[in-house]
Design a protein around this nucleic acid. Structure first.
Lengths: 204, 204
DNA sequence: AGATCTATATATAACAA
DNA sequence: TTTGTTATATATAGATC
């Protein structure tokens, strides 16, 4: 919003909409990374850009790519089914997964893949210990809100515009066909990234 | 970044960090909603606020809550397993899911739950038709990038700071224990929300 | 279409109550 | 600690190349 206070409504002009999308996507990415840095939050972001055929990922860790790609597969399989029917939902998932299976298990990917998860799980375990002192685990819905435990939070962010299907992207991920660099994210000068060793600036 | 050009590094002072988190979270939410509006993107956001015990959701559609809660469950189950071992990963999911199952299937939730999914799936189907004309489906990894199909993209966004475990939140969701309103998002004056009927401002 | 520029609208760090 | 204010840093719409 500048030069004119843009009217907050759908931009009908195609090229204008695309331009706005690009600019704002970049801004959003930056905001996420800043939040990550400033608040010590382990953050990641994926944007399935509707105007490109490869998603943008930040930070460019393969584990994050695959993990969220995994997440993204779920809606597709839900096609005509109801989300609430969790059992049939999962059956479909198994079917798809077994097709996938022969294409996976590259050792060198394991390490990266579990990188973030380990962090998360450590926190979950820590939290469980804390929570178990205050209530039973049987009926979770009745459990009182646990006492505030100060711990590093995890931020997760996905932005997705459908261009390829989720599964296609996942396949590519599993087949190691990730193109080197699709991150367009040049953040400012003094950015400090405490959590990731593989952060980098591209941008331009 | 004002009054002083903040140094982009972890804020060690607890209260300052919390204040910054709150402000920036709000800003991020607004940005997402604006992107949604301006570019006609079906967007949703969840923030597992590290300082509160209920996630913030926008828009406040239960289907979105449960769908993303579902996504969020996956990492937890991966605890000590490798993400790459998709089969065992899924087996664990089934185990958890069957525990869940007796607590679900409330009719009045189905409608909301599938609301977004239907939109997504429509687009996936449309895309598949388009893509099937140009290549075989057997080896997806070798399929050339499909021709750009102009269609409304879907934005998905999750921000998560671990306070409760994913599963606990999911349980609450399934048990219909969602507290009325945990969204703190008062956007500007002229905001127009074409896609959702249940948007609202709370702020405060 | 994408890269740059610039005037303004917004976001927000530091204060204040 | 929340809320409101204000000075500045940023984000970005529209224009230009």
């Amino acid at each position: 919003m500048t030069r004119k206070k843009v009217k907050l409504a759908f931009i009908t002009n195609d090229s204008a909409r695309k331009a706005t999308f690009k600019k704002r996507k970049k801004g959003l990415m930056k905001k996420v990374s800043e939040l990550s840095t400033l608040c010590g939050i382990d953050a990641w972001a994926i944007i399935y850009n509707p105007y490109e055929n490869q998603p943008e990922v930040w930070p460019n860790t393969m584990g994050v790519q695959c993990m969220l790609a995994e997440f993204k597969r779920m809606p597709e399989m839900e096609q005509s089914k109801k989300m609430v029917n969790q059992e049939s939902f999962i059956r479909q998932m198994i079917a798809k997964a077994s097709e996938q299976q022969k294409k996976q298990s590259k050792e060198n990917r394991e390490k990266e893949m579990t990188e973030h998860l380990k962090e998360i799980n450590k926190r979950i375990e820590a939290f469980k210990k804390e929570a178990s002192t205050s209530s039973s685990t049987a009926d979770v819905s009745q459990v009182a809100a646990p006492p505030p435990v100060e711990q590093k939070p995890v931020v997760e962010l996905g932005l997705e515009g459908m261009q390829r299907t989720q599964t296609e992207w996942f396949n590519d991920c599993m087949n190691n066909n990730i193109s080197e660099q699709q991150i367009g994210f040049g953040h400012g000068d003094e950015m400090i990234m405490p959590n990731f060793s593989d952060n980098h600036n591209t941008g331009v």
